[in-house]
Amino acid sequence: MARYLKLYLQFLKFSFSRSLEYRMDFWFRIVMDCVFYAVELAFFTILYQHTDLLGGWNYDQILIFVSGYLVIDAIHMTVFSNNMWWMPIYVNKGDLDYYIVRPVSSLFFLSLRDFAANSFLNLIIAGGILTWSLMRYPGELGLDNLIWFLFLLLNGSLLHYIMQMYFQIPVFWIHTNRGLVNAFFSTTKLMERPDRIYSDWTRRFLMTIFPTLLVIALPAHVLFDGPDPLVISLILGVTAVAFLGMRSFWNLALRHYSSASS
């Protein structure tokens, strides 16, 4: 474990120094993410001009829900996004060889090597929006609820990464996963909307088989309605199963991998 932590610190050092070399890109990316946040907030603000409730949530609640999603997106952009971009390129070019032969988990190395330092600033901004939306909430939010919510938010980031990996790994067989990755990003719309707008069967599907609602919608319920053990067990259980499944899928993919030097 200590070895992995040390290695991750090296990744951070290297990523920060590299991102400062490309200063214009550094600012472009910050502006892009800020505009994304503005678009997400504007979407719901406009909808709430025409209704008081959506999926059972009022405007104050939806602001917390959206801000929570923005934090998850910022974590994803900071920690995983660059690595997800490079992964299919490594597989197709045969560069994966360099990572397989290292004495650490190839999944760890390829998922976390590139830390997007420019998006880290956006993570702070998204965190600020979440703090603002929590502070302006007129009702009572218990400390227990808040701690569980923040913990499940981190879990949501992990689950978001796991789900994207299911769309990335087929690149070992089909050689281009552009369509699959686009397909994944089109499914993220499902998690950006309140869960109670969906029908019962859709909700069941989206809480178990393709668990997008566990990323932020259910954690938001824990914040508003209190920590229900059943809901928390569902979120953590499904995440654990999804993670183990993804690891097996990764190992299976590695067994199918071949390049000129491996």
Binding site: L47, H50, T51, L54, G55, I197, Y198, S199
Partner: peptide
């Protein structure tokens, strides 16, 4: 889902 919910709840 979103438009059905919006029309129903408003």
């Amino acid at each position: 889902a979103i438009w059905n919910a919006l029309f129903a709840e408003s």
